[in-house]
Design a protein around this nucleic acid. Structure first.
Length: 493
RNA sequence: GCAGCCGUAGCUCAGUUGGCUAGAGCGCCUGACUGUGGAUCAGGAGGUCGAGGGUUCAAGUCCCCCCGGCUGUACCA
């Protein structure tokens, strides 16, 4: 679509250009999340988008090039560098690189991360995460705090209680269940445990019968694509299913049930004890099952989590363009990862935290509370009726800004008609006109474009439209600012 | 990665069994309207039909391949 020899303007798949309103609402969301994190005492951290690939932890055991999934290249010294795919790997690097940091180290971080994977609806290759982590604390209080923060964050964003839920599980409990059922990876299937966890993770999509198939022989989806199963014995499958069906509506009851299922497994009992402490803390501050539930189907990430794992799900349903019902599912997650800093320090350092997917959450919220189609509140444009009056308009715009209004002078070229249309297209709330008439009379004309647009619907004939000049007033110049304020302009955009 | 569907103006699409200069609606520009965004009317700009190759007298239409998009699925630190 471009001329020969000229580059075609285009952008990378899975990347986006974002304009005004989208960025404004993202910034607002981030501000809200940060205020919650700061209320819990976390401090800000920023790290580079680019890291050495071995720092990111993305080298395959016996390969000299990075694993797929990240954007990577060789730097001027031929070292592999790559764009970060999350904010946790850079955090673990910071912990190891600055041993003088006070521990527990508690930081939040917001920023873009990059993943070289297939984009989908609401899934991009560059997206923003908003993380908080406590590094250097093994206390379940830290985990309970993560649950509380995730819950508080959702409500601070205006998501009503009941429209979201924080789901919590513990990897140690799952390990205990597998241990008691005799499920382990071996030579016949070195990835068996991994396959089992993947199967459980799919619970929300394929439901229990599908999970059963994946624990056993495998299943074939509607496109005819086969997925290999974990090939467990019927008794093992039943043991896992019993765990997945444990009650979730009551945390103490859940603890009793899983407690009996893992009895005799040291790791399992340890996990139950952790969850019990979390429940105790949450109950003490009144976070009931309308905010945080224990749910064995939460697995997450599958790789580095070592203890409690968290997931925030939006529970309301929406209709998409085709009228089909859709759920947003997971918008945030987290968990305890006691091994992550070990690869730098050679010793375990307990850590736990959470991560909120800003862009995904933003997409969900735009459905829950669609942005009002109104104009930028408090925006004023001073039009230029004649080139010789441009200086007058320029000065007027400055005067408005000095008074705290968001005002600009029309900088393009074109007739008044064009200027009105431009202001309308831009979403400007009010326009100010100073022409010869006004100048002579010591007045200004002010038009409320929003109100005018509403009134225009009543007007049929061009003559009436012109004669009545809906939503427009001419006032003494001294009354300009009060007039604008009465029209609903404020000092912010 | 695998599978299925789809690529025609800025956008949404139509285009009969291959057949003159490829159409519509919306949007955009200009004018009716000399100082007014809406509405109405009139006119206008804009497409080597995703790229390349092949079959044919003739290809937007048929075949091959590549690229891109959508959907499902797998993977997801």
């Amino acid at each position: 679509m471009s001329l020969p020899g000229r580059p075609e303007p285009r952008h990378l798949r899975g990347f986006r250009d974002l304009f005004g309103a989208a960025l404004t609402s993202r910034r607002r969301m981030i501000d809200t999340l940060v205020s919650v994190y700061e209320r819990y005492g976390f401090t800000a951290l920023e790290t580079p988008a680019l890291e050495y690939v071995d720092v990111l932890g993305k080298f395959l055991p016996e390969a000299d090039s990075p694993q797929g999934g990240i954007f990577a290249f060789r730097d001027e010294n031929s070292d592999w560098v790559g764009l970060r795919y999350d904010l946790t790997a850079p955090l673990s690097r910071v912990i190891a690189e600055y041993p003088e940091l006070p521990r527990p180290f508690r930081r939040y971080q917001v920023g873009p991360v990059f993943r070289a994977e297939k984009p989908g609806p609401g899934r991009y290759r560059e997206f923003h995460q908003c993380d908080f982590d406590t590094v250097g604390s093994a206390s379940p209080l830290a985990d309970a705090e993560v649950c509380g923060i995730l819950s508080d964050a959702m409500e601070a964003l205006g998501i009503p209680r009941g429209s979201y839920i924080v789901r919590v599980s513990d990897r140690k409990v799952l390990n205990g269940i597998l241990e008691r059922a005799g499920v382990r990876s071996d030579d016949a299937d070195p990835n068996r445990v991994l396959t089992v966890m993947r199967a459980i993770d799919k619970m929300d999509r394929i439901s229990l019968p599908g999970v059963r198939d994946l624990l056993g022989a495998g299943r074939v989806d509607e496109s005819g694509d086969p997925t290999r199963g974990a090939r467990l014995t019927p008794a093992q499958i039943e043991a896992i299913v019993r765990y997945l069906e444990v009650s979730r509506s009551d945390r103490p009851a859940h603890l009793r049930e899983i407690g009996s299922l893992v009895a005799g497994s040291a790791v399992g009992e340890e996990g139950v004890a952790e969850l019990a402490r979390i429940d105790e803390c949450l109950a003490k501050v009144g976070y009931g099952v309308d905010r945080v539930v224990f749910d064995p189907t939460v697995v997450r990430g599958l790789a580095y989590y070592t203890g409690p794992v968290f997931e925030v799900e939006l529970t309301f349903e929406v209709k998409d363009e085709t009228g089909a019902t859709r759920r947003f599912g997971s918008v945030a997650g987290g968990g305890r990862y006691d091994d992550l800093v070990e690869r730098f320090l050679g010793q375990k350092l307990p850590a736990t935290g959470g991560s909120i997917g800003v862009d995904r959450l933003l997409a969900a919220l735009s459905v829950l509370a669609p942005a009002p189609a109104g104009r930028m509140p408090g925006s004023v444009m001073v039009l230029v009726l004649h080139p010789s009056l441009a200086g007058e308009s320029f000065a007027l715009a400055h005067e408005l800004r000095t008074a705290g209004l968001a005002a600009e002078v029309f900088l393009g070229k074109g007739s008044l008609r064009n200027q009105m249309k431009y202001a309308d297209d831009r979403g400007i709330r009010c326009v100010v006109l100073v022409g010869e008439d006004e100048l002579k009379a010591g007045t200004v004309s002010v038009k409320d474009l929003q109100l005018g647009g509403e009134l225009a619907r009543e007007v049929q004939s061009r003559e009436t439209w012109k004669r009545e000049r809906p939503a427009q007033v001419t006032v003494p110049r001294a009354d300009l600012i009060p007039t604008l304020r009465s029209m609903g302009t404020s000092s912010t955009r």
